Amino acid sequence: MTNTVIARLGLERRRSQLGELQRYLRVQEQGFVDLRGQVQAFCDRYVQALGAAYLELDALESQLHCATSGLAEALRRNGIAARSPLAPQATAMPVLPQLPGSTPLPPEPAGTWTEIAAPSLKTLYRRAAMRLHPDFATDDQDRRVREQGMMQVNEAYAAQNRAQLEVLLLAAGEDPVRVNGGNVDALRTWLGRCEQIVQGRLRVVQAHSVALSAHPMHQLWQAIHKAEAKGLDPLAVMFNRLSTQIAERRQELYIGQRLRPESDLAVAFVLRRIERMGAATTTTS
């Protein structure tokens, strides 16, 4: 009886610790959600301020690539060694880490702390037969699964292997209390499973929190927040720089679309483009 009381107290402590761990997990999850909401609000503001400019710049870069590639091809046909520039990469819009769905905890065993005698081996066998017998199959596939399971049950019973019968019954969905007897073992099994789930979820949340803190948009948000606190307007500065780049690309595109392949200016134009973008291939005639 003393051992039973000690076991109960130990499990009560574990259940209390599980509750504390769940509360800590909720705090961590909420912290991630709050921080992600703040960074997402900045991302929305960032896209609203600069998104259209980035799209226009990307479109100009794509047109420039087509014009430059056409010039390079024409130069090669005229016997002039020319390399093709790398294709420009479209500006990626910010995407923040998102927590995956959580695994729900299994229900707590019914009748907590109710002492139930462990069933006999014969009783376990009968319960296994009720759960796995092929006669209860719903279709051919289910029958094959049941036949395999029933074969394992018969082998375990013939070998008087109680542990194997218990495993088979639990895998078939039997209540741990009806398998192990007494709720002490059932509650211990339940607590262990819950602890694994909560600790695993906590590791996932912490990993996503680290990824969010290291995300470029989080770092940019912090930098811009500090600058704005000093009365600066960094987003306006970034927009002006993009506008300058757009004007330069428009002028470059205007020239590139009008150059003749036999012109020395065409070679210089391709070389400047390659210098900025890098070269994809080297072709000689």
Rank of each mutant, 00 (worst) to 15 (best):
P134K: 10
P134G: 15
P134L: 08
P134Y: 07
P134Q: 08
D135H: 14
D135A: 15
D135R: 15
D135M: 15
D135L: 15
F136C: 05
A137V: 06
A137L: 07
A137S: 15
T138H: 08
T138R: 13
D139C: 11
D139W: 07
D140Y: 04
D140V: 09
Q141M: 06
D142K: 10
D142C: 09
D142G: 10
D142Y: 07
R143K: 09
R143L: 06
R143D: 07
R144A: 15
V145T: 05
V145Y: 04
V145Q: 08
R146F: 08
R146M: 09
R146A: 04
R146C: 02
R146K: 13
E147F: 05
E147Q: 15
E147A: 08
E147Y: 03
Q148A: 14
G149R: 06
G149C: 04
G149A: 14
M150S: 12
M151Y: 03
M151V: 02
M151E: 11
Q152N: 06
Q152I: 01
V153S: 01
V153A: 08
V153Y: 00
V153Q: 02
N154R: 14
E155Y: 07
E155W: 06
E155I: 06
E155G: 02
E155K: 12
E155D: 11
A156W: 00
A156Y: 00
A156T: 02
Y157G: 00
A158E: 12
A158D: 11
A159D: 13
A159S: 10
A159K: 12
A159F: 07
Q160E: 13
Q160T: 09
Q160C: 10
Q160N: 13
N161E: 10
N161W: 04
N161Y: 02
N161S: 12
R162I: 01
A163Y: 06
A163K: 12
A163W: 05
A163P: 10
Q164V: 13
Q164F: 03
L165R: 00
L165I: 10
E166F: 05
V167N: 03
V167F: 02
V167P: 00
V167Y: 01
V167H: 02
L168W: 01
L168N: 02
L168C: 08
L168T: 00
L168I: 06
L168V: 04
L168Y: 01
L169C: 13
L169H: 00
L169K: 00
L170F: 04
L170T: 02
A171H: 11
A171V: 09
A171Y: 07
A171I: 07
A171E: 14
A171D: 13
A172S: 15
A172R: 03
A172C: 10
